[in-house]
Every structure is written in structure tokens, then in C-alpha cells.
């Protein structure tokens, strides 16, 4: 254990660490955002009227949740280009260059996250009292309008706490993209390790980076939930930061929901 190297890595990180951490964050943010959107679609398809979409959504969720992200990443990036279908060339959009491996990483994590978000959103939709849909439909709203204006706004409040957990997980899961060569934080550490062989010191520093990111996220999530609460309507009891960081609290913070206006 080389303490001076450890402190040096934290206080004066090499540029590969900084750019790796930045990549970790932006890949996680974009993947989570796309995953939520895709998950919402899957959840709606799954409970919709079209049989083909229901079957597709169920099958998709089954396959994605039944296979490791690592395998999905390799299949999407290396597998697809090995088949000669698409080789992920770098994209240049609005003056920003997006490397092929980053595209593949974001696609993998979004597609994967969509399946998990679909289940969370579906449970949240089911948690909204059936009387809400009936009341909306009795007023002349169509099913789609009732879903959009009455059910989803209530469901989304239930989604926020588990969504926070999903993003915490997402920050860490990006490390698996090192396997396809995405230069995120973990791969930056690995490269540094192969040059210096100070394995314990380096990965301890890397661990500190991850915990810093997830801790900052915990604060942000607490702030978001506090704001929802202040707006006079919180779907679930807010999870105190202590519980968020150290666990505990048991069933109190699972997907409970105070029903409508009963």
C-alpha cells in the first residue's frame, strides 16, 4: 500500500482518471434517461391492447433480465461488428465527437435499463387506485388521456425513489463497459495499474471516486424528494439520507403508496 500515491491519486488525479470519471457520469446519465423513456414505452406496451406489442415487451424484458450486462455489451459492440452489420463509427454531432464504443455502451445500458425501468413503472402504474382511471373515464377521457393526465403523474411520484436506486446502480454498472474498451473510470484505473502495479492503492482510489459519485447522487435525490414533499404531495415517505446511505428502514421504504383521496 503506497499511501503517498493514494493521496496523490485523490488530490491530484491523472488526466485519465478525470476523463474516465466524466465519461462514467455522462454515460450513466444518458443511459438512465434513455432507459426511463424506453422503460415507459415497454410498460405501456405491456399493458396495452395490441397483442404484438404485449408479447414483444414481455419477451424483451424476459431476455434482457435473464442475461448479464457484460454479455449484452459484448454482443452489441463486438458481436454486431463481427457479423459485419454495423461497426460503430465515431459520430460527429453539433461539434461533439462521440466515439463508437461510447455509442455502443450507451445503447447497451439504455436497452438493459429499459427492461428494469419497465418493471418499476408497471408496478407504479398498478399502485394507482383503479378508481382514478374510472373517474377520468367517467369524465369523458379516453384511456390514453386518463393514463397520461391522471395515472402517470401519480405513478411517476412512486417511481422516483426506486429510480434513484437504479441510477446509483447505473453509475457502478458503467464499469462493466471496460470490457468493450470504453475508457471510463474503471478502465482508467486498470491502465494505470498495468503501468505501476500498485493494484490495491489504485483500486482503493478508484473505489473512493465511485463512492464520491454515488454519495453526491444521494444528496441530489434527497433534495428532489424534499422538493416533491414541499410541493404538498409526496407519493411515498421520504427516505432519510441515513437510510439511503447505510440501509435499514425495511418495508417502510419499499413501494408503498398512500391511496388517492380516501
Amino acid at each position: 500500500m503506497d499511501w503517498s500515491m493514494f493521496w496523490h491519486l485523490l488530490v491530484n488525479p491523472p488526466s485519465s482518471f478525470v476523463s474516465g470519471a466524466v465519461k462514467t457520469i455522462y454515460v450513466a446519465v444518458i443511459s438512465q434517461a434513455l432507459g426511463v423513456g424506453f422503460g415507459l414505452l415497454l410498460a405501456l406496451w405491456r399493458r396495452g391492447r395490441r397483442l404484438a406489442l404485449r408479447v414483444f415487451a414481455s419477451g424483451y424484458i424476459w431476455i434482457v433480465r435473464g442475461t448479464p450486462v457484460l454479455v449484452q455489451a459484448v454482443l452489441i459492440y463486438d458481436g454486431i461488428s463481427a457479423l459485419g452489420l454495423y461497426s460503430f463509427p465515431d459520430l460527429h454531432l453539433l461539434g461533439v465527437s462521440i466515439p463508437g464504443v461510447v455509442q455502443a455502451g450507451i445503447i447497451t445500458l439504455s436497452l438493459n435499463e429499459g427492461a428494469y425501468m419497465a418493471e418499476i413503472i408497471r408496478a407504479a402504474i398498478d399502485s394507482v387506485d383503479a378508481g382514478q382511471t374510472e373517474a377520468a373515464e367517467a369524465l369523458g377521457m379516453r384511456g390514453r388521456q386518463a393514463m397520461r393526465h391522471v395515472v402517470l403523474p401519480q405513478a411517476m411520484r412512486v417511481v422516483i425513489p426506486p429510480l434513484g436506486n437504479e441510477f446509483n446502480n447505473m453509475l457502478k454498472v458503467t464499469s462493466l463497459l471496460s470490457v468493450i474498451g470504453l475508457q471510463e473510470l474503471f478502465l482508467a484505473g486498470q491502465d494505470y495499474n498495468s503501468a505501476t502495479l500498485q493494484t490495491f492503492t489504485i483500486f482503493l482510489a478508484v473505489a473512493v471516486y465511485y463512492i464520491a459519485m454515488t454519495t453526491v447522487w444521494s444528496f441530489i435525490q434527497s433534495a428532489i424528494e424534499r422538493r416533491l414533499e414541499a410541493k404538498g404531495y409526496a407519493a411515498v415517505e421520504r427516505m432519510p439520507l441515513k437510510v439511503r446511505l447505510f440501509g435499514g428502514g425495511g418495508d417502510r421504504f419499499s413501494m408503498g403508496y398512500e391511496r388517492g383521496a380516501r
Binding site: E134, A136, A138, G140, V150, R157, Y233, A261
Partner: peptide, 24 residues
């Protein structure tokens, strides 16, 4: 059709035992 049923319901007010107000 769903659209026609929705249109028919516009003319019918329904008040529920448990109110079913939109809590949000």
C-alpha cells in the same frame, strides 16, 4: 368504439362513493 364511449360519457356525470379526486 372507445372514442364514442368517451363521447357518450361526457353527458353523464358520475359521483363516486370514495370521491376519486385526483390527488396530484
Amino acid at each position: 368504439s372507445e372514442a364514442e364511449i368517451a363521447r357518450q360519457r361526457e353527458a353523464i356525470g358520475f359521483v363516486f362513493q370514495h370521491f376519486n379526486l385526483f390527488p396530484h
